[in-house]
Nucleic acid binder design. Structure first.
Lengths: 123, 123
DNA sequence: CCCGATGTTCAACGTTTATTGAACTATCGA
DNA sequence: TCGATAGTTCAATAAACGTTGAACATCGGG
């Protein structure tokens, strides 16, 4: 569990898998928030997403994002840091990631991927 | 069965649904071939895709593509013509469709969405 | 008016998916 | 060394998905 998990090579990244990965609201939110972070460190810790779902569910989504080549995991002590594989994705599918992120930003309210995600409970 | 089936309005088109729709190889192929057709009539007849899958299976994929807002169906006699909802998609998600199509074109051989799709049968 | 062609609808099926909680592993700090 | 923390793995479940074939509806041409 301590070693860095396997990632696909750049050439192994497949378009349908990437699109399928991005089609899930939780994963799209993760990607979107990682994209926001690109201007800073580019990295976020797994725990930073704990608000989105339960921990085991998040681990499932992280694995999918990693296996399809969308993001990269770095192990640091008891933490794991994730980041977008921006260079590989831009090389494989130029403009795709930016278009998806821009589209997500446009619909941020609709997708509920805003910083503060208030869940309104109707009775 | 004769009347034009329901389509979502432009504003009803949702990003995750569009991405999910595009993540299926058969649907991606349909979209890709419709995009090729944009320089000509922009339309193709349902039957033009009969090589991709069985007819009932195609009807299923057509329905998904229509319901997510990716394409439009026009009834003409006993035929049905489909086309990309280019304007609506570009308005909703600028650059997305083009990026996806360009990515698909880049991987056309890998995705087997070339005009002649030879299926190599290993014993 | 029927026949053939075009496509859809329906029920059935096996597979994949997302989600959960419990158990587990690994690391850091006191 | 012990305990708390971070995150993964596993088994179980329910829902959604893609594929199939048979039945159906509609239109155009003889």
């Amino acid at each position: 569990m301590s070693r860095t998990p396997p990632h696909p090579t750049r050439e192994q990244i497949e378009l349908p898998m990437v699109l399928d990965c991005l089609s899930d609201p939780i994963r799209l939110t993760i990607v979107y928030q990682l994209a926001q972070q690109e201007r800073v460190s580019g990295e976020l810790c797994c725990g930073d997403f704990n608000g989105l779902a339960g921990k085991s569910n998040l681990a499932y989504h992280f694995a999918k994002l990693r296996e399809c080549g969308l993001m990269q995991t770095r192990v640091a002590g008891t933490n794991r840091f994730v980041r977008l594989r921006r260079e590989d994705l831009d090389a494989r599918f130029p403009g795709l990631l930016d278009a998806v992120i821009a589209s997500a930003a446009k619909d941020a309210d609709r997708l509920r991927l805003l910083p503060e995600c208030e869940v309104v409970e109707a009775e």
